[in-house]
Amino acid sequence: MNALSRLIESRNLVPGDRLPPEREITEALGVGRSTVREAIRQLQALGAVETRQGSGSRLVRPVSPATVHMPLSFAPASLREGLLQTLDVRRGLEVEASALAAMRAMPVDLERMEAKLVEMERVHMEKGTAGREDLAFHLSIYDATGNPLFHQLLEQMREAFEGFFAEPFDRPDFARRSFPFHRKLFEAIAAGDAVLAKANTVAILDIVAEDIVTMAR
């Protein structure tokens, strides 16, 4: 992302300007397309770039290496401590996000959210775990709030958040008991029931907290 920010700055791009084509960026930076796409996605999450299908990406606010926010980081004494500290933040974000999603989600948001949920359920049934798909489902809830700050905050803490979805403690059954509540959470959001959406989010996070404590022993 820093390299792309430097490229944007070197070309004197200002809000409203289109980013160079993906192929041109890969050649200029000497990296693969997947790396470029990830950098653009991160700038999107930070609200600096807007991408529309068929029209490419354009800058919506000034970007430079000095202005792009770097990910937050911390050095907990143990995996248990790090997950519990991050869980405190997840509670603050996800409980409120689920309520806002219930109040604001548009049909297209619900369609996208359900698609993520169905994929999560499919992978979970096949493998007994679905960390990456679980994260994608939660991200779709953030997006459904209509507030880009939720996604921006997550980008700042992505590394810490991803620890929950990567079989911590080498336990593929981590938080498995929370699986049924994800469908209930979606149904509450789809029904516009903010109170029930909050309750199901709390239920999921309570199970996560219990598993952190018991599996870390």
Rank of each mutant, 00 (worst) to 15 (best):
L59H: 09
L59P: 02
L59M: 09
L59F: 07
V60W: 12
V60I: 14
V60Y: 13
R61V: 05
P62F: 09
V63Q: 08
V63D: 07
V63H: 01
S64Q: 13
A66H: 14
A66V: 14
T67C: 09
T67I: 13
T67A: 06
T67L: 00
V68A: 11
H69Q: 10
H69W: 12
M70H: 11
M70P: 01
S73C: 00
S73F: 09
F74T: 14
A75T: 08
A75R: 10
A75S: 12
A77P: 01
A77L: 14
A77E: 15
S78W: 11
S78D: 07
L79G: 01
L79W: 07
L79A: 10
R80Y: 14
E81H: 08
E81G: 03
E81Y: 14
L83E: 01
L83H: 04
L83K: 07
L83T: 02
L83N: 05
L83G: 00
L84C: 05
Q85N: 14
T86M: 10
T86Q: 08
D88T: 15
V89G: 05
V89L: 06
V89P: 03
V89A: 12
R90W: 05
R91G: 01
R91I: 05
R91M: 10
G92W: 02
L93N: 05
E94K: 00
V95H: 00
E96A: 09
A97F: 04
S98R: 04
S98Q: 04
A101D: 04
A101K: 05
A102D: 08
M103S: 09
M103W: 03
M103D: 03
R104Q: 05
R104K: 10
R104I: 00
A105M: 02
A105S: 11
A105I: 07
M106N: 12
P107H: 11
P107Y: 13
V108D: 15
V108N: 03
V108L: 11
D109F: 07
D109C: 11
L110M: 04
L110F: 02
E111F: 06
E111Y: 11
E111N: 15
E111K: 13
R112W: 09
R112N: 01
R112I: 03
M113C: 05
A115F: 06
K116G: 03
L117A: 04
L117W: 02
L117C: 04
L117R: 08
V118M: 02
V118F: 05
V118G: 06
E119Y: 04
E119P: 00
E119H: 06
E119D: 07
M120W: 12
M120A: 08
E121K: 01
R122N: 03
V123P: 07
H124Q: 09
H124V: 02
H124D: 12
H124M: 15
M125Y: 07
T129I: 08
A130Y: 05
A130K: 02
R132S: 10
R132H: 10
D134S: 12
D134M: 10
D134K: 03
L135C: 13
L135E: 08
A136T: 14
F137W: 09
F137R: 02
H138F: 06
H138A: 09
H138L: 06
H138E: 15
H138I: 06
H138K: 08
L139Q: 12
L139Y: 14
L139S: 15
L139C: 09
